[in-house]
């Protein structure tokens, strides 16, 4: 089975790119992550009130998935139970963790808010994506210092080679007080869908670090 990267989406610095093409750029000025993600949600034309309840990490992943998954048509050619999800980041759900901590710091003002603490796990982000796109395959969330293309490649390859998944939606989604970054991509069997690039660590590294369009021939 030849695995190919069939689509990818990047969100960073107030821009959303799909397969290397700029989808939208927020007006310069307010760089607040919540402001940007709400703007992106509205620009994407979504009608999903649950979005507003999500934490920033889940909203960020939602916007990337909403940009990439529907246009890819992956759910039309692969059973929902055969699409696995493999994600990672460096700081887990740090923004929600801190927000929750603030609600319980003071024993005299101790009011943990369920609307906040339900998001104090990064795999909730993956769950939100599953709910939105009705995906029921294996889900995995890993922590690493940075986007680890080798680890992602090995893990994903294992999922597909062992038959645990026919396709995988994968990526790196990180958000903290200093910034945010989402890099989502999907890998499928080349017999099922034409790919942009072969699924190799080199391809993943190149896509993660570059914004320009990359195709077969200019990536190792």
């Amino acid at each position: 089975m030849a695995q190919v990267i069939t689509s990818y989406c990047k969100i960073k610095d107030q821009q959303v790119l799909l397969n290397g093409e700029l989808v939208l750029a927020a007006p310069s000025g307010n760089a607040d992550i919540h402001h940007f993600l709400r703007y992106t949600y509205e620009q994407l034309g979504c009608e999903y009130p649950r979005f507003f309840k999500m934490d920033a990490l889940s909203k960020l992943c939602f916007c990337a998935a909403e940009t990439m998954i529907p246009q890819s048509g992956i759910v039309n050619r692969t059973d929902a139970g055969d699409i696995a999800l493999l994600f990672s980041n460096r700081q887990s759900s740090i923004l929600s963790d801190k927000a929750h901590q603030e609600t319980i710091n003071d024993p005299w003002n101790f009011f943990p808010n369920p609307a906040v603490f339900v998001y104090t796990l990064p795999n909730i982000m993956v769950g939100e994506m599953c709910i939105r796109h009705q995906l029921t395959g294996d889900t995995t969330f890993l922590l690493s210092e940075g986007f680890d293309a080798d680890m992602h490649h090995r893990y994903l390859d294992c999922l597909m080679q062992q038959g645990a998944a026919q396709a995988v939606i994968s990526g790196w989604v990180e958000a903290d007080e200093n910034g945010y970054e989402a890099f989502l991509y999907m890998v499928e069997d080349s017999m099922v869908s034409a790919g942009l690039l072969p699924h190799t660590p080199g391809s993943l590294t190149a896509l993660y670090h570059n914004s320009k369009i990359l195709t077969y021939g200019n990536v190792d």
Partner: peptide, 17 residues
């Protein structure tokens, strides 16, 4: 308003807070 079960817990906390 479209609230769910998590919101019910949040409402309980709101009443106390």
């Amino acid at each position: 308003m479209g609230l769910d079960s998590i919101d019910a817990l949040a409402l309980v906390m709101l009443l106390e807070k």
